[in-house]
Computed example of a mutant assay.
Amino acid sequence: MSILFCSIGWMDNYAGISGDEIKNGGSFIEQNKVGGEIINFFPCNGKFYGYVRNKGNFNLNKLTSDKKIIKQGYVDGVDIIWVAKGNKGRVIVGWYRNARVYSKRQMITKDLGLPLVSDILKKQNMLSESDEKDEEGYYRFIANQEDCILLPVENRTLGVPSGKGFMGQTPFWYGQSNESKYFVNKVKKYINSSWQSIDNKKEIAKNNNSFLNSNIEQRLKTEKAAVQYVWGYYTNLGYELKSVEKDNLGWDLEARKNNNILKIEVKGLSGLGKQIQLSPNEYKYFLKNEPDYRLCIVNDALSDIKPNLFICFYDKERKSWLIENQNEIVVTCSKKVSAIIELS
Rank of each mutant, 00 (worst) to 15 (best):
K85G: 03
S128E: 08
E179P: 06
Q169P: 02
L151A: 02
K104M: 08
E129G: 02
K122W: 00
Y182P: 02
I81F: 09
G137R: 09
K110Y: 04
Q124I: 01
V101I: 13
Y182F: 13
V93R: 05
D119T: 14
K110S: 11
C148I: 05
P161H: 03
T157F: 04
K164Q: 10
V184R: 14
Q124Y: 08
G163M: 10
N125A: 12
V117Y: 04
I80W: 09
Y174S: 15
P152V: 12
V93D: 02
R105E: 01
N98M: 03
S103Q: 08
G89V: 13
K133S: 02
K181H: 06
P115S: 10
P161G: 04
W95S: 04
S128D: 11
E146S: 05
C148R: 03
Y139M: 07
V187E: 03
S103D: 02
V160L: 06
S177I: 08
G175P: 08
F166M: 04
G86L: 13
Y139V: 06
V93S: 05
V187W: 02
G113K: 07
D131T: 03
I149W: 02
L114M: 12
M126C: 13
L114R: 07
G137F: 09
G168T: 00
A99P: 07
S180F: 11
Y102N: 12
M126I: 09
K123Q: 11
D111A: 15
K133G: 00
F166A: 03
I108L: 06
L150H: 00
F166P: 01
W82F: 15
R90Y: 05
A143P: 05
L121C: 07
Q145N: 05
N178F: 14
V93L: 05
Q106Y: 09
I108P: 01
K88H: 13
Y182S: 14
